[in-house]
Write a protein that binds this DNA or RNA. Structure first.
Lengths: 158, 158
DNA sequence: AGCCCTTTATTGAAGGTTCAAGAAGTGCCG
DNA sequence: CGGCACTTCTTGAACCTTCAATAAAGGGCT
C-alpha cells in the first residue's frame, strides 16, 4: 500500500475542489435557465446528436455513463415535461427507444448558448490550447481506466 | 457567443465522462467499504487534518466546497453514526463546532488505505509525474475561476 | 438601549440517485 | 419444444441534495 506523494495530494485536492465547484456551478446554471440538472441536459444534448434524435435506453445510458435505473427515472421526468418520449423497439420487444421531441429540440436550441457560455467561462476561457489538450488526454486516460477496471471481467456498472 | 472548437468539445466530453465515472466509482467504493458516500468521507478526512480534529461548520463547508445546508444534513447523519459530534462555540453562540470522535478517527484509519488505493488505481497510477502536475495546475485554474465568478460581487454559493 | 442588517446554522419539502428486486423478452442448447 | 441463463427496463424505498424559510445571535449605528 502506497500513500499519495505530496504532489499527488495537492493535485487530488485541487481536482476535487474544481469538480465539486464545477458541478455545482453547472447544475445551478441549468436549473436556473433550463429548469433541469446538468445530467438531464446531457441526455437531451446526446440525443440531439444522433441521426434521428433517438436512441435505445441502454445505449444512451452507456454514452452518458449512468445506470439504467437512473436513466429510467430521468426519462420518466423528461417525458412528463414533454422534452422527449418513449417508443417501443420493433426489433426487440424488451427495448425502449427514447426520442427527442420537437419541443425538446427547441428547448435545447434555446438553452444551449447560455450553457456553452458557462462552460467556456468556467474552463476553456481560462486554459491555454496546450492545457486543453492536456486535460483531454488526462481525462481520456482516467475514463479508459474506469471503463474496464483491472482484474474485473464482469461489467462493474450495471 | 462562441461555440466550442473541436478540440474543446473532445476535451469536454472526455472530462465529463471521466468525472462521472470517477464519482460513481469512488462513491461505490466508499459505500461498500465504509458505508458512506465520498463527500461524507471527505468531511471526516478534512476534520482529521486539523489541529484538534475540530472545525466550525462554516469553515468546514468552505473547505470542502459545499453549502451550509448540505453540511448540516451530513453532520446530522454522521453524528448519528457516532463518527463525529457537535459542540457549541464559546466565542460565538450561533456557532457550532464539529468534532471528529475517536471512533470516527478509528473509522478513518481503517478505511483510508482502501480509499487511497482506489484513488491511485483510478488516477495516479495511470498518470505520469508531468500529467499529475498538469492536472494540478488545470484544476487550480478552474477552481480559482469558480471561487469568484467574474462580475459577481455577491457570493454565489450560500 | 433600540433598531436594522448580516451571519450562522437548521429544518422540511421537493426532487434526484442508488440499490435490490422483479417483470418481461431473448436466445441458446440439449 | 422446454428449460435456463441472460438482457432490458422499470419500480419503490431509502438516502442524499437543493431550495426557501426560519430561528437565533452578532455587530454597527444613533
Amino acid at each position: 500500500m502506497e500513500w499519495l506523494t505530496a504532489d499527488e495530494q495537492t493535485a487530488w485536492r485541487s481536482f476535487l475542489q474544481a469538480t465539486t465547484l464545477l458541478e455545482d456551478y453547472l447544475d445551478r446554471q441549468l436549473q436556473r435557465d433550463a429548469g433541469m440538472p446538468h445530467m438531464y441536459y446531457a441526455l437531451l444534448s446526446t440525443l440531439s446528436e444522433t441521426p434521428a434524435r433517438r436512441m435505445r435506453m441502454t445505449e444512451l445510458a452507456e454514452r452518458v455513463k449512468i445506470t439504467r435505473s437512473r436513466l429510467s427515472h430521468a426519462v420518466a421526468r423528461l417525458e412528463g415535461d414533454g422534452w422527449l418520449r418513449r417508443e417501443s423497439c420493433p426489433s426487440d420487444r424488451r427495448g425502449q427507444i427514447v426520442v427527442l421531441t420537437d419541443t425538446g429540440y427547441d428547448k435545447l436550441v434555446q438553452t444551449a448558448p447560455g450553457h456553452v457560455e458557462a462552460v467556456r467561462a468556467a474552463i476553456f476561457d481560462r486554459l491555454s490550447a496546450e492545457q486543453t489538450a492536456q486535460l483531454a488526454e488526462i481525462s481520456q486516460v482516467i475514463a479508459d481506466g474506469l471503463h474496464q477496471p483491472a482484474g474485473a471481467d464482469v461489467p462493474w456498472l450495471r
